[in-house]
């Protein structure tokens, strides 16, 4: 049995709060990145979406973590259209599917998001999307389950994926229509995924839940 990091409901709540705050801070930067390859709304979609998810999580009647994650996903979907609405809503549902009533393993949380998003958007690493961050992050989290600092390995893998989107030609999402105009640019969806994982790392660092 693994003794990997395990997050309870209050840690998940802190994660959502911190992600919402970090995405809020990154709002203009993400929109500017998106303005170069997409429609310039990515910062607003992600910040508004995580604020809504946070409220959905808080307003959920149930004490049960999977129910609260589903409520967060529904709230995200109600608040945000674009492509990220359905994608992150599916990410929350993916995480809910892997959560226990009172908590979730770190690796399950990341891979739940990753699989949920991939199932909806059908993108794979190399397509120059958020999956270039989520997939390697999920892989690293699974591989690093019992090491000392799994989030560092997750962020290293995610950061490498993020940087790799610079050399990719988008083949999914609206940026795909831009063809080679995406070359040399960080994908905004990959950037926001990295912001979310960085927020998660902050919460993990603060709480060290392996006591």
């Amino acid at each position: 049995m693994t003794t990997g990091i395990y997050l309870d409901k209050s840690a998940i709540r802190r994660f959502l709060l911190r992600a919402a705050q970090s995405l809020e801070e990154a709002r203009s930067e993400l929109s500017a990145l998106d303005g170069e390859v997409g429609d310039g709304d990515h910062g607003a979609s992600m910040a508004d979406g995580f604020h809504a998810a946070m409220r959905g999580f808080d307003l959920c009647d149930s004490e049960n973590l999977p129910d609260c994650l589903r409520a967060a996903g529904r709230a995200f979907l109600q608040a945000v259209g674009a492509t990220v609405g359905p994608l992150y809503a599916s990410g929350f549902l993916g995480a809910a599917g892997r959560a226990d009533p009172d908590g979730i393993a770190l690796a399950s949380l990341i891979s739940g998001f990753s699989e949920g998003i991939a199932g909806r958007g059908k993108a794979a690493p190399g397509d120059c999307t958020m999956m270039d961050v989520w997939e390697p992050a999920a892989h690293a989290a699974a591989a690093a389950g019992v090491t000392d600092n799994p989030m560092q390995e997750v962020l290293d893998a995610a950061g490498a994926g993020l940087e790799a989107t610079r050399s990719m030609v988008a083949s999914r999402g609206r940026a795909a229509r831009l063809g080679s105009r995406t070359l040399g640019r960080i994908d905004p969806g990959a950037q926001s995924a990295f912001v979310i994982l960085t927020s998660l790392a902050g919460v993990v660092r603060e709480t060290d839940p392996r006591e």
């Binding site: 429609d39 310039g40 709304d41 607003a44 979907l77 109600q78 945000v80 259209g81 674009a82 609405g85």
Partner: peptide
């Protein structure tokens, strides 16, 4: 109705 240049929500 969506945001500027952005799909409406599934709910809408």
């Amino acid at each position: 109705v969506g945001e500027l240049f952005s799909s409406p929500t599934a709910k809408a």
